[in-house]
Design a binder for these strands. Sequence first.
RNA 1: GGUCCUGUAGCUCAACUGGAUAGAGCAGCGGCCUUCUAAGCCGCAGGUUGUGGGUUCGAGCCCCGCCGGGAUCACCA
Length: 606
Amino acid sequence: MHRIYKNPVKMNIEVLIRNEVAKAVNTLYQAEIDAAQVQTQMTRKEFEGDWTVVVFPFLKLSKKGPEQTAEELGNYLIAKVNEILKFNVVKGFLNLVVSDQYWINVLTKAFNNQQFGSISDAANAPLYMVEYSSPNTNKPLHLGHIRNNLLGFSIAEILKANGNKVVKTNIVNDRGIHICKSMVAWLHSGKNETPESSGKKGDHLVGEYYVKFDQQYKKEIAELEAKGMSKEAAEANAPSMIKTREMLLQWEANDPEVRALWQKMNTWVYKGFDVTYRNLGVNFDKIYYESDTYTIGRDEVLRGLKEGVFTRREDGSVWVDLTNEGLDEKILLRSDGTSVYMTQDIGTAKLRYQDYPIDHMVYVVGNEQNYHFKVLSIILDKLGFQWGKDLYHFSYGMVELPQGKMKSREGTVVDADDLIEGMIDVARKTSEELGKLDEYDETEKENIYRMIALGALKYFILKVDPKKTMLFNPEESIDFNGNTGPFIQYTYARIQSVLRKAKDAGILWESNNLPAQLEPKELELIKRISNFPDVVKEAGQNHSPALIANYCYELVKEYNQFYHEFTILKESELAKKSLRLVLSETVARVIRNGMLLLGIECPERM
RNA sequence: GGUCCUGUAGCUCAACUGGAUAGAGCAGCGGCCUUCUAAGCCGCAGGUUGUGGGUUCGAGCCCCGCCGGGAUCACCA
């Protein structure tokens, strides 16, 4: 594996150790090894030491036992590397003890670097486009969309922190059979109901008509089946469905009335979405609409047809044959000439590469569409786009409820707006009971309740490995204690409180007045801090906000132990007091920056 | 059936990509507020990592076979 060390603090010692070990093996055992292959890791807490070299791989070269080999390497390192004071050997592990002064330097550099952990983008930095959210305009956002939005936003932030340029994009699925269903139902039974007349949020209103359509459709199917029609025939011939297909054709033919209704209902939905997005704290740099891109896709499909990449069947439908790739045949245009999902995605992709010099395209889409993206990638490749096979589908798992999958038909869908509202209520109640915000006015208080509620929700969702299916229990998942967002926010607020008090007392803390020796807990904290840049990098490589979340939790847990073990402001030795304040401020900054990568804000008090 | 994902404490999740005695939180039990924010800290208890083989110095992680859960293979999106 190829590793690039961008953090100079860490690069020095870890790379130094690797290089020296490689030299040692060369000198002691007359064998050439690559320094990058030397296995090093931070020493586990239960052993003495800071860095550990795994010596097992060298046994074949040394032709000696693990203890003796480790001993020899240890003696070599101690002679060559100033920072290494001593070592011990446990089985095949060589534990190196680094001087406190080294770690104090690490802390000093972190403290004096406001950007610690992230890399600012260079002029020639690669451009990532991250597509996420991508709602349909026939229903409001639910818990599943929340996971998508939070992951997409966070991944974009993490990629930025890794020195990349990022364009966040949203492809709004504003056309197609689904929106026609809502339109048909609204025409049928809407009686001109509008968000204004009903007081309902636009996306919720349209969603209600989508449900009404489904109810009506089901009824018609049942009636037809009762008359002896087969299920398939009933589904195709139900009057509502016939009307919907007609409307889709009219829409694609630019029928003014249909287009006007479509525009009207979509506008309601967008207003509703804007509110939800604002509450979630996500945003986009560029929004695409399927209604603008599907024709481009259709043209591409027709071009492919002309070039013999695709085939037309007798009924007029257009297909791509992927059996050579181990997949099936896939439809690209219906027999009536209208577009399907895939058609649109082809057009959107082409347009985006025209609009931006994209180096990496990331699709944040659920794992239920793994097959779709595999196919999309191959099709774009067949159409001659060099970037086709480089698309990255960031595939994440579904969110399930205690009773299983969310089913809109069974009314078990957790609505995004309701969920956020509910969490703010809990945050308000908890906060009022604790009464720590009494000196704030109502606006400030509400802002903090919102921060805490969203911190809880976002952290809960982002801390789990994106690719795994996760469970959300509306009753139990709203917890503010333990491994939660509010716990981390709380620690941040607690540190701010200490720093405020220090400032009020006229205490100065600077990194040029630190002690020569560290307490074990202080050392642990510095080590934890020193990992932050690596975690950011790893989160970028693995597209995993969960790594950031888990890191923040570990750091905060470590800090709270430190906080209970030592006094800060009442420490009599100036250098020690200074160290603890520097440590506290650095931890707070890492917490804030880490949480921002998750889209979570930290309040100054809570 | 084909392809892909997944299985770790009662529950929800970790485990630095093959390293040392598998860790947290919740739930349960017991301690700690006259001291910088108790949304906190400390302790107890909780495991044959679904299962059987294999690879090697070493496997929760890699390979093969079973068992369980899920997704997908539409003129849906």
